[in-house]
Design a protein around this nucleic acid. Sequence first.
DNA 1: TCTGGGGTCCTAGGGCGA
DNA 2: TCTGTCGCCCTAGGACCC
Length: 419
Amino acid sequence: MFALIDCNNFYASCERVFQPDLNGKPLVILSNNDGCVIARSNEAKSLGIPMGAPAFKYKEIFQKNKVQIFSSNFTLYGDMSNRVMAIISKHVPDVEIYSIDEAFIKLNGFSENEANKKCKDIIKTVLKWTGISVSVGLASTKSLAKVANRIAKKNSDKTNGFYSINDNKKRIEALSNISTRDIWGIGFQNEKKLSRINIKNGIDFINLPDKWVKKNMSIIGLKLKKELEGTPTLEIEGGKVDKKSIATTRSFESEISSLDDLIERITTFSMVASKKLRRQNSECNMICVFIRSNPFKQNSERYHFSLTGSLPFSTSSSIEISKFAVNLLKKIYSKNRLYKKAGIILMGLSPQSNHQFSLFDKDLEKQKKLMKSIDNIDDKYGLYKVRLASQDQKRIWKMKRQKLSRNYTTEIDEVLIVS
DNA sequence: TCTGGGGTCCTAGGGCGA
DNA sequence: TCTGTCGCCCTAGGACCC
C-alpha cells in the first residue's frame, strides 16, 4: 500500500501558524518579484483567484475582498517542510519526499487497520507538533494514492483528511468522478488530446487501448494507466538523491539590452548555481545559458536564445563556471534587442569524489582552496558576500518582496515573543 | 508599470563508428 | 576502399510536476 501525505494550502498554512488571526480570511502568496499567485487559502480559492494569476490583474479583487497578500518566504516554508517530513520519517521508514509539501510512504507488511491507523496518527501528530494540517490518501499504487488524497482533501468535512481506495468499487467510483485534467501526470496538452477523442474522466482513460496510450502519451502515459488500473509501476524513491541538473534563472524587473548588464547577471547566476553545486559535493561538465524576451508583451517579436557548451574538464569553481558561461552568453547575444529573463543551467553532474583528472587540472587544488575560502566567508558573513569583479558590487537590482513575513523559525531576532 | 523558479523524464533526429 | 545498415550517444525540445 502507498499513501500520499499532502499539506493543505501549505504556504498559506505556514503563514497562519504564526499569525492565527489570518484564519478564515482570504490569503494569497506571490511568486518571486511579487509576480504571480502561487498559493491560496480556501477562502481565496472561492473568490475565483486562479493559480498563477498575475497579481497586478487581481489588484481590485484583492482590495475589494481584503485579501491578505504575502511575498514568498521560502526560508520559512523550507524549515516548516523539514519539520513535517521529520515527523513522517519517525512514523515510517519508507518515505519519499516528493516536493516541499508532499511525501509518499510505503506501508508494506501492515494490515489494513494498521495502515489506516498509521495514516491517522500522522495527520494528528503533524497538526499537533507543527500547526500544519495534512491530508492523506491511501491506495495500492502511488497514482491512486494521489486520487485518494484529492478525495480526502475535497471532502474533509466527511473524511477528516483521510481516504482509502481499498477495493475495486471505490476505485471505479473515484475514477468516474475525476476529470482527466485532475489526474496526476495528465497535463494541459494530454488533456487536449484526450478530449478530442471524447475521453473525459479516469474511467474513460483506463478503457483506452494500451497501444493508443503508448503512442500518444509515451511510456509515461502507459505507466499511469497501469497504476490507475491498480498495478504499481512507480516505486518509492527514498534516500537523499543528488540533483541531475542545477538551474538559476530570474526575470528582470525591467527589460535590459546591454551586454555588460547581461554579463553581470550571468556572472551572479553562476556564483549562485556553483554554490548549489558545491553544497551537494558535485561538479559539472556542461553549461547551458539562455536569454529571452518578454513573452507577454503584445505585438513584439519573441525570442529565446540558448547555447549549451561542454567544459574540457569537470569543475565546481565559481570562477571557471562564470568564465565559461559568459563566453556562451557572448555567442548568443544579439544587439538592439530587449531581454526580460536569463538563466544558467549546470548539467553533466558527477560527485567531486569521482573527479577525472585531466591536463587542465594543474590549478585544481588552488581553485578548490579558493572556493573553500569563499564558502567559509559566506557562511560567516552571509551569502554571496564575495563577488567577482564582473558582478554589480552594489547589487542595485533586488527581488521585489514587499509583503515578506518574518523568518519565525530560522532567525533568532525574528522569533515570536509571547508576553 | 507589474505575468516565478527549479526540477525530471521521454522522444526524435542527427552524427558517427563498427 | 567505398557504401549501406545498425545501434549508440548526444542534443534540443516538449511534456509533466510542485
